[in-house]
């Protein structure tokens, strides 16, 4: 994944200004920055929800034209949202099954009568989803309507839904916001396991510096829509611009 000279404007407001960076296969890439720096907008550009005003997006070395979000999803990019975007009226299982929609092909007619191809396909995908349910340890809430779940579990279900798509690139928008230390540890472990076991490429936004520096291979730092730093956690930590703008200096 590579982004070249991305600029995003809404009317007169410039959300992102001329940013370029890349995400290598198999790495964990973090985007950090103060509130309003344009991080979420950046993620929205990658996932196709916003179409950049200027600049080019390359995915798998191929230039990506303006695409609808659902077409981007079919390329193998899945994501979670800052303010959980689950389907509240559906059960956990159904929510996660929606993650596999891009891979399910049976037609309307065969589904109408359920027998044959449609049922076989359904059960094959159900098996994949059950593995993800096991991996994220949410077996016991499988049939619960999502609306009834507490915050932490919702975040996990959302991750499960993104994983169900077997993404080549997984985007996580503040996966640990609002969690307690224990839940953060669980979530960090899941992210690392994912990266190790399935070698999923991950791009995440996070405010918890400890988590970011521990998890990620490389970090992009944004401020006021510009890129002010890019590199390994150590490089970023010692970058003077980044310290001034974001990390701050300890007052002692």
């Amino acid at each position: 994944m590579e982004l070249r000279n991305i600029t995003l404007r809404f009317g007169g407001v410039v959300a992102i200004k001329d940013i370029s960076f890349d995400i290598r296969d198999g790495e964990i890439r973090a985007i950090i920055g103060p509130n309003g720096a344009g991080k979420s907008s950046m993620l929205n550009v990658i996932s196709g929800f916003y179409i950049p005003t200027e600049g080019e997006v390359y995915f798998k070395k191929i230039k990506r034209g303006p695409m609808k979000p659902y077409e981007v999803a079919r390329l193998g990019i899945a994501r979670t949202f800052q303010n959980i975007a689950l389907f509240d009226g559906m059960s956990v299982l159904d929510n996660i099954m929606t993650g596999r929609l891009t891979m399910m092909k049976s037609g309307l007619l065969s589904q109408a009568f359920w027998y044959g191809a449609a049922a076989r396909e359904e059960f094959a995908h159900r098996e994949k989803v059950e593995r993800i349910i096991d991996f994220l340890e949410i077996q016991n809430i499988r049939k619960t309507p999502v609306g009834r779940l507490p915050y932490g579990l919702k975040k996990r279900v959302e991750l499960a839904r993104a994983l169900a798509a077997e993404p080549k690139l997984l985007l996580l928008d503040e996966p640990m916001a609002g969690m307690n230390v224990e839940e953060k540890e669980d979530m960090s472990r899941f992210i690392l396991d994912l990266n190790d076991e399935f070698s999923t490429t991950i791009c995440l936004i996070e405010h918890d510096m400890g988590v970011v520096m521990d998890l990620s291979d490389r970090v992009v730092v944004m401020d006021y829509g510009r890129k002010i730093g890019d590199g390994t956690p150590d490089e970023v930590r010692n970058n003077q611009d980044v310290i001034d703008a974001y990390l701050g200096v300890a007052h002692d």
Binding site: S47, G48, F49, K68, P69, Y70, V72, A73, R74, A78, R79, F81, A85, L86, F87, D88, G89, M90, D94, M97, T98, G99, L101, T102, M104, S106, L108, Q111, A112, F113, W114, A118, E121, E122, R161, A162, A165
Partner: peptide
Amino acid sequence: VARNLTRGTVGRKWMAIRDMDIAAEIIGVN
């Protein structure tokens, strides 16, 4: 037929659009 449609893929697409259309589009529902 209605029951079969609503418990399968098509039904999930519909409900996804109903519950949160933007998220549905981003996870791949046309």
